[in-house]
């Protein structure tokens, strides 16, 4: 186990270097000269030279790359080009709202998707199973944009059950007043894919020999389902859940934008609109690192939960 853990950690180094090189290549080479973006329309050559010196882009590419690596290690990406707020402060303050939105969403999504998946697995190939599968395909196909536009209009503007948009300071009020509508609309698109995935996990288990043995022993159907099938199907479900955790860090782009929730997703969209490169660079690199660690954790969890799996 330890040998595997250390080997995987070492394998992450080239991937991390690759991510750094890719981001560096995109923003420092493809992106052109940021001094022209920063200096505005009426810039004198001296201004541009000054900004280029401040950003360090008048230096050769290897020293720029070194500056970038130092930024990643120290976590200090400087200030936002648009608002001059420090990038680390932006991420620290925007993470909270994103988590308030996404953690309840993830919990409800997982619990309800597992329940529905168990239900349709028990009644598989019945009318209930087929109609739920058709319904989930249709629900997945409607764009989140349509759900948001229609939902915001019907439930907030027209019926007035929820606020149209906004965010407060108190956690309780955010959770009970501002967050429910976006969470509900997000669930409309996110439950269906999880349901379909978990259904296949459960169906994989339900046809196994050990399930037939359990039934032959005379166990009740609910005991077979919860004690035997669900316990085994939980392994891929849990690892899948663990691998989706880094998504919490990017926030929910569309939901946060529409409902004016000051989270990371909205900040990233704003940064793309304003060509605010430091924010996008920092987000890309750190989320990639989080993704790599989540994948490693998922592998380890798989190994821990299922001793039959041998790690190579």
């Amino acid at each position: 186990m330890w040998a595997f853990f250390i080997r995987r950690l070492l394998q992450m180094i080239p991937t991390l270097l690759g991510v750094i090189l890719l981001v560096f290549f995109l923003f420092n080479w493809v992106g052109g000269d940021p001094a022209y973006i920063l200096a505005g329309k009426m810039a004198s050559p001296e201004d541009i030279a000054n900004i280029r010196h401040q950003l360090g882009i008048d230096q050769p590419w290897y020293s720029q790359l070194w500056i970038f690596i130092q930024q990643i290690v120290s976590g200090n990406f400087g200030d936002s080009w648009a608002t001059h707020e420090s990038v680390s402060h932006i991420f620290a303050t925007r993470l909270g709202p994103s988590l308030v939105l996404l953690i309840p969403m993830m919990v409800i999504e997982t619990v309800s998707a597992v329940c529905f998946a168990l239900l349709v697995s028990v009644f598989r190939r019945s009318i209930l199973d087929q109609s739920l599968m058709v319904l989930s395909t249709v629900m997945m196909s409607i764009s989140l944009l349509v759900y948001i536009i229609v939902g915001q209009y019907i439930f907030a503007s027209w019926l007035g059950w929820f606020p149209v948009k906004g965010w407060g300071d108190s956690l309780w009020r955010n959770l009970t007043y501002y967050a429910p509508l976006p969470i509900f609309l997000g669930l409309m698109v996110s439950i269906a894919p999880s349901l379909r995935l978990y259904r296949t996990f459960i169906l994989d288990e339900i046809n196994q020999d050990y399930v037939r043995t359990a039934r032959a022993k005379g166990l009740t159907e609910s005991r077979v389902l919860f004690k035997h099938v669900l316990k085994n199907a939980a392994i891929p479900i849990l690892t899948n859940l663990l691998m989706s955790l880094p998504g919490l860090l990017t926030g929910a782009f569309l939901l946060e934008r529409f409902f004016a929730i000051p989270g990371i997703g909205r900040e990233i969209i704003l940064a793309v609109e304003r060509s605010d490169f430091p924010i996008i660079k920092a987000a890309t690199v750190y989320v990639a690192i989080a993704t790599m660690f989540a994948n490693l954790a998922a592998d380890l969890l798989y190994r821990y939960l299922d001793p039959r799996v041998s790690l190579k």
Binding site: L16, L26, F27, F253, V272, S275, A283
Partner: peptide
């Protein structure tokens, strides 16, 4: 590995910004 380490939408946004 490099391309899959960055979440899909974030990568698209980054390239669109650049």
């Amino acid at each position: 590995n490099v391309f899959t380490a960055i979440p899909y939408l974030l990568l698209i946004f980054a390239i669109a910004a650049v």
